[in-house]
Amino acid sequence: MVEEILKFHDKEFIDSAYQNIFGRLPDTHEVNRYRNMLRSGVDKRAVLLAIWQSEPIQRPLSPELDRALTVLQTEMKRERGFRGKMERGRRLEQRIHQIDWKISEIRQTFDELSEQLTRLGVRVDNVGQEIHEKTYPGFVQLQQSADELQRSIEDKLSALEARVGGRAGQLEPVVCRGGSASIAGMADLPGGAQRLVRRVRSLTVR
């Protein structure tokens, strides 16, 4: 029964659906409504179900037609569910492609940054080598000068200590015999002599 209705097209299809379901022909408003649905691309089976559910049925349908419409409704629901899954799958696939593209973009950016860091590391190494080459000889020379200066100071201090030791040996009898009182007076001695006497005293105390 349903297959026979679906064989018709446009207004004849609408007339056949109304005649078999409601036992009457559709009015102008009903024809225009469902004709617009058909011409807009709506599935003819969906239009038939819309007509079936558009108003209460005043007379009982034949068991064959009622069963056929119920089966058609179940099939359409299943198809809508399948199409919905297909649509969700399509959107998911698009999303996966977008994520893959984003990952590729991030990977490219990472590679560029890695290359820049490598170049920067080479530049740092070159600068470090250049600084080493420019400053190391001066540092070595400065270290050598400091060592020479230290040796010179040590030599002069050794010579000075030897001279002071000789002077101490000459003045020791005087200092030990009379102490500060054996000399006419510390205040009467020149400043250099006073310092020398103090140095001798410190050496003899040791």
Rank of each mutant, 00 (worst) to 15 (best):
R83K: 01
Q98L: 10
T109R: 05
T109I: 11
T118C: 05
V124D: 00
R83D: 00
R91C: 00
T118A: 11
R91G: 00
S114I: 13
Q116W: 03
L120N: 15
T118W: 14
R88A: 03
I103M: 12
E112L: 12
R88C: 01
F110G: 02
Q116M: 07
E79L: 04
I99T: 13
N126C: 05
V127E: 04
R123P: 01
R88M: 02
R88N: 03
E115K: 09
R107S: 06
T118I: 13
R80K: 08
E115I: 13
V122L: 04
E115D: 09
E93Y: 03
S114C: 07
D100I: 10
L92N: 14
I99L: 11
S114Q: 08
K85N: 06
E87N: 05
E93A: 07
E112C: 15
M86A: 07
Q94M: 07
V127L: 11
V124K: 01
R88E: 07
I96P: 01
I106L: 11
I103P: 02
R123H: 10
W101V: 08
I99N: 02
V122E: 06
R78G: 04
L113Y: 14
R95C: 06
E115N: 15
R80I: 04
T109N: 07
D125K: 15
H97C: 10
N126E: 10
E93R: 13
E79S: 03
N126G: 12
N126D: 14
R78Q: 05
I103W: 01
L120S: 06
E79H: 01
R107I: 03
R83I: 00
I106Y: 08
W101N: 10
I99M: 12
L120V: 13
K85D: 10
G121V: 06
Q116S: 14
